[in-house]
Design a protein around this nucleic acid. Structure first.
Lengths: 214, 214
DNA sequence: GTCGAACCAGACTGTCAAGTCTGGTCGGTG
DNA sequence: CACCGACCAGACTTGACAGTCTGGTTCGAC
């Protein structure tokens, strides 16, 4: 914890804000492209248009930089997912259509390049830095799953679904959506055509409704 | 490309076979623990009880070593999975029980430490060595999915299930099983108690049968 | 206008690891 | 026996990179 005790809040951006953001963005890009070990601090500094010393003045060391970048990306991903899930609050006239819409959008979040980079980093570095998992799960995965469970419960109460264990149903909805996605996207190295995304989402919703529909 | 053209076949194990195996095992262990970048060839040689030069004489360079290790591990994982899936050939009197049995065993394969290490390596290095994905998908994932689809189709023909798109059903079965597994195992860093595994498998089969059962 | 904090370019240090080389041991084959 | 190819220990070369340091510039605050 390199937090200087002088600043009031927990955030503690010591340098000028825009530099900090630039460094964080550059780090995210570079880590995503090269992986933690391969990414050089020199390259990150260069990409950010900043001197190497500035990077160290802001973040202390490379590991902290990785952690902060992951926090930012997790929040970003969570925000995108949560916004999508929120759509289930008002499902309109047809649950199937609403679920397909949300499923497709969730899938789009999931196959997004930055989302893949995030999962890659967490997966790859979990052995060396186990606390990164907490960052990712706590800030992104857990919140999204909780929100989805809430919405599914809401749909059930409103009589659109028959769900008795919302958390399980949420896990299953996500699982149906993302089951074969590693293979389909070749671990994030292949872009899926829109038609295939729709197809996958459609099939997932189909099975989901067979199991949990009225 | 250090392949000496003297040997006849493509396999070309130039040294004594047991040395090759020892190196491959050591490499697998070391890569699994440390990741590709962190794992040192010195450490691999030491673990294999072999001189560093011997490693290079067998495999040429570190990258090749990784690839060969992944091939071996993929085959290993595939064999374990396929053996489990095979059990659906003779489902006995009760499909639910058979599916729960297979589901649980598949899950056990999936949360296995070596399986996690394999996925970690593929995920982490996919950007640098895209062809590793082909090794993993071709040798393991695709074959398992195909076998599972075959068995599900068989069960459907025998009147135990109602499956019209076996490949999709197989993807969904796997998705239901492994949907929340990243979070549950904290990306492979936490061992799941047997009870939780059973619970997850049970819930997955439950949903699956609601969707595809007779 | 001066003071200090943030910043710059780039040189520097120390470490670590991939891959090579040397010189020698050992076991099997003609 | 003489040879050859696999193997050994370990020194060596080479390059990359984290993190530090220097000396100087910019800019806002007082």
């Amino acid at each position: 914890m390199a937090a200087t005790a002088g600043t009031p809040a927990t955030a503690a951006p010591r340098g000028r804000i825009d530099k900090r953001r630039a460094i964080l963005d550059a780090a995210t890009t570079e880590f995503a492209r090269e992986g933690y070990a391969q990414a050089g601090v020199d390259a990150i500094a260069a990409r950010a248009g900043v001197a190497k010393a500035t990077v160290y003045s802001h973040f202390g060391d490379k590991q902290t930089l990785l952690r902060e970048a992951l926090v930012a990306e997790s929040d970003r991903a969570a925000a995108a997912n949560l916004e999508v899930v929120e759509r289930l609050l008002d499902p309109g006239d047809d649950v199937r259509t609403a679920l397909e819409d949300v499923g497709l959008r969730l899938l789009e979040c999931f196959v997004d390049e930055r989302a893949w980079a995030l999962r890659r980093l967490v997966t790859a570095e979990v052995v060396q830095f186990p606390d990164l998992v907490d960052v990712f799960l706590g800030r992104a995965a857990a919140r999204v799953n909780q929100a989805l469970a809430d919405r599914l419960l809401g749909l059930s109460v409103a009589g659109h679904l028959r769900v008795d264990a919302p958390a399980v149903a949420a896990e299953h909805f996500a699982g149906l959506l993302t089951g074969g996605i590693d293979a389909r996207t070749r671990f994030g190295t292949r872009r899926l055509p829109a038609a295939e995304l729709r197809e996958v989402a459609g099939a997932a919703v189909d099975t989901f409704l067979r199991a949990f529909g009225r």
